[in-house]
């Protein structure tokens, strides 16, 4: 597959993508990576295009990453933030969408606390829609940047052992990563407390284990997940101290993994909760590379979805 055969206008989830489309996004990101290393980090690719960043949920990393990607492609980007609480009623969401559509944006990047909102938006607006995270459902660009990072280090996915550890139930990153990695032929293991494991998780084509040691044994890639401290009040775990005892990643525990293991985290990290500081900053960590790669991957997604590659002249 090459860019000319890309016809998709929205990126709502990894669920919709074929392996060939995923490869194309990663290959395209490869060519954009170099832009961020130039002294003048800008190409005219999306000049005259308008991108709306619509964040109904707080985000620093993802929003900045999209914004930088847009600016490096010379798109005009507009940010729109609203706390979900202020716009709880769906009428407002539909009306917001229609109002935004009236301003003729080319692409809308949306994050929302509720699953399915990007899908709903995509049905109503002409603009292409990029899901920047919808509740615990999907976060496709995160999975793509994770895949990009894994491919850089491991060369490919076939037979690769990837272990994702933490709050599996409430994580959109996990769902998108499971979909992507299994499509690409990796073997995915998920691990965490049973109280934060969604029901029937194995129907997604993964192995579920309930001890950190078992998850780490012989693995090529370790992906740690943020544990939200408010989960404690919802009976998901008794205390931070005990969580770290059972599922916190330490240097000693990481020894069970393969010698060339890479350690990932989608951020933001809770040091001392799911991961010890020395491991997060240690030699296996590729956490900051993930962030850097995020910009290139989002540039690739914006470029492909904008349709500019298909325009003549």
């Amino acid at each position: 597959m090459n860019a000319t055969s890309w016809v998709r206008r929205d990126l709502l989830g990894i669920a919709d993508l074929s392996a060939a489309e995923i490869e194309l996004i990663l290959d395209t990101a490869e060519s954009f990576r170099e832009v961020s290393e130039r002294p003048i980090k800008k190409v005219p690719t999306l000049r005259g295009r308008t991108v709306l960043n619509l964040f109904f949920e707080a985000s620093t990393r993802t929003r900045s990453s999209f914004e930088i990607a847009e600016k490096r492609l010379s798109a005009d980007s507009v940010n729109f933030s609203a706390s979900t609480s202020g716009l709880k009623k769906g009428e407002s969401l539909i009306d917001t969408a229609l109002n935004l559509q009236a301003m003729s944006p080319d692409l809308i990047v949306i994050r929302h606390a509720h699953p399915g909102v990007p899908h709903m938006l995509a049905e109503r607006v002409e603009a292409g829609v990029i899901n920047a995270g919808d509740g615990a459902h999907e976060h496709p660009t995160q999975a793509l940047l994770d895949a990009f990072t894994i491919r850089q280090h491991k060369g490919g996915f076939e037979g690769l052992k990837v272990s994702i550890i933490g709050d599996i139930e409430h994580s959109r990153v996990v769902r998108s990563n499971i979909l992507l990695l299994t499509k690409m032929g990796a073997e995915v293991t998920v691990a965490g407390p049973r109280t934060m494991m969604p029901v029937d998780v194995e129907s997604l084509g993964v192995r579920a284990v309930y001890s950190l040691e078992e998850a780490l044994r012989g693995t090529d890639v370790v992906m740690m997940l943020r544990v939200q401290l408010e989960r404690q009040a919802k009976m998901n775990f008794p205390s931070v101290r005990e969580y770290f005892e059972l599922f916190g990643l330490t240097r000693a525990r990481l020894k069970a993994a393969k010698r060339d293991v890479i350690l990932m985290h989608p951020g933001p990290m809770n040091r001392g909760v799911e991961i010890a500081s020395d491991v997060a900053e240690g030699k296996y960590s590729v956490i900051l590379e993930q962030v850097a790669n995020g910009v290139a991957v989002r540039m690739a997604v914006l470029y492909l979805l904008s349709g500019v590659h298909q325009e003549v002249g």
Partner: peptide
Amino acid sequence: EGEWSTRLGL
């Protein structure tokens, strides 16, 4: 609550 709620994150 089942496979589909897990897939959809609901």
